[in-house]
C-alpha cells in the first residue's frame, strides 16, 4: 500500500494518468490501422474524448466520499491532493470533445449552424450546459478565486459539479441509439459511494441531535 500511496501522491504520476487517455487514439489510427476506427477516425476521437471526460469527472467526484468513508486511508488522502488537477482535466477533455464536435460537424465555417442544431436538441444542449458549468468551475478553481468569492460562496458554486455530472451521464446515455451500459459502470460506483457517504455523515450527526436517553433514565 505505501507504494500505491507514494505513487498517487506524486503530481507527475497523476499528470501521466490524465494525459495518456488523450493519446490513446494514436494506437488504433496510426499503429493498428483498425479499419473500423479508420471508417471515421474523427468520430472515434470525438467519442473517446467525451468518454474520458465522463470518466475523469466521475473519478474526481469519488475523492471526497472516499475521504469521508476512509478518513485514515493514505490513498484517499493522497487522491484528495489532486482534486483541482483532475477536476480541471475533466473540463479540458470536455472542451476538447466539444471542439472535436465542431470540427466533426464541418469546422468553424459551420460553427453557427452547429450551435443552432445543438440548441434545438436536448441531448446536445445538455452536453453544452454541462460544459459551461465545468468552464465556470475551471475558471474559479484557483486560490485567488476562492478568496475573491469567499469560502462559502465558492463552495456553493462548486456544488454545481454534481449538476454537471448528472447532465454528463444523461448526455453520454443519449449518445447512442440504445442505452450504453458503460454509463452504469462509470457513474454507478460514484452513486454508491455518495449514498454511503451521506449515510455515514447523517449517522455521525444523529447522536448529537438526540437527547441522551440513557442518562435521563
Amino acid at each position: 500500500m505505501p507504494v500505491l500511496e507514494k505513487l498517487l501522491r506524486s503530481k507527475v504520476v497523476i499528470w501521466i494518468l490524465i494525459v495518456l487517455p488523450g493519446l490513446w487514439p494514436v494506437w488504433p489510427i496510426f499503429i493498428q490501422h483498425d479499419s473500423t476506427v479508420l471508417a471515421d477516425p474523427l468520430k472515434y476521437i470525438l467519442h473517446h474524448l467525451g468518454f474520458t471526460a465522463c470518466v475523469l469527472l466521475a473519478v474526481v467526484l469519488t475523492f471526497t466520499p472516499l475521504r469521508v468513508l476512509f478518513p485514515k486511508s493514505p490513498v484517499a488522502l493522497a487522491l484528495n491532493r489532486h482534486r483541482r488537477l483532475v477536476g480541471v482535466s475533466a473540463f479540458a477533455y470536455a472542451a476538447l470533445h466539444f471542439s472535436t464536435h465542431v470540427l466533426y460537424e464541418g469546422g468553424l465555417e459551420s460553427l453557427q449552424a452547429t450551435l443552432k442544431i445543438a440548441a434545438g436538441k436536448p441531448f446536445q444542449l445538455v452536453g453544452l450546459i454541462a460544459l459551461t458549468i465545468l468552464l465556470i468551475l475551471a475558471l474559479t478553481s484557483f486560490p485567488a478565486a476562492i478568496r475573491w468569492l469567499g469560502g462559502k460562496r465558492w463552495k456553493n458554486l462548486h456544488r454545481l459539479v454534481y449538476v454537471a455530472a448528472a447532465l454528463s451521464a444523461y448526455h453520454q446515455a443519449a449518445a447512442r441509439k440504445i442505452f450504453p451500459q458503460q454509463v452504469l459502470w462509470i457513474f454507478g460506483p460514484l452513486i454508491v459511494l455518495e449514498v454511503l457517504r451521506v449515510m455515514k455523515e447523517r449517522k455521525a450527526r444523529r447522536p448529537v441531535a438526540r437527547p441522551p436517553a440513557a442518562s435521563a433514565a
Binding site: 471515421d40 468520430k43 466533426y104 464541418g106 436538441k121 446536445q124
Partner: peptide, 23 residues
C-alpha cells in the same frame, strides 16, 4: 426532418478525408 437527437441535413462519408474525415 431531423432525428430528435441529431441533424439529418448532412452526413459523414465513411473512409474519406483522412483523419479529419469528410462530410
Amino acid at each position: 426532418v431531423d432525428h430528435p437527437r441529431w441533424s439529418q441535413a448532412s452526413e459523414r462519408i465513411i473512409g474519406a478525408g483522412g483523419v479529419l474525415g469528410a462530410r
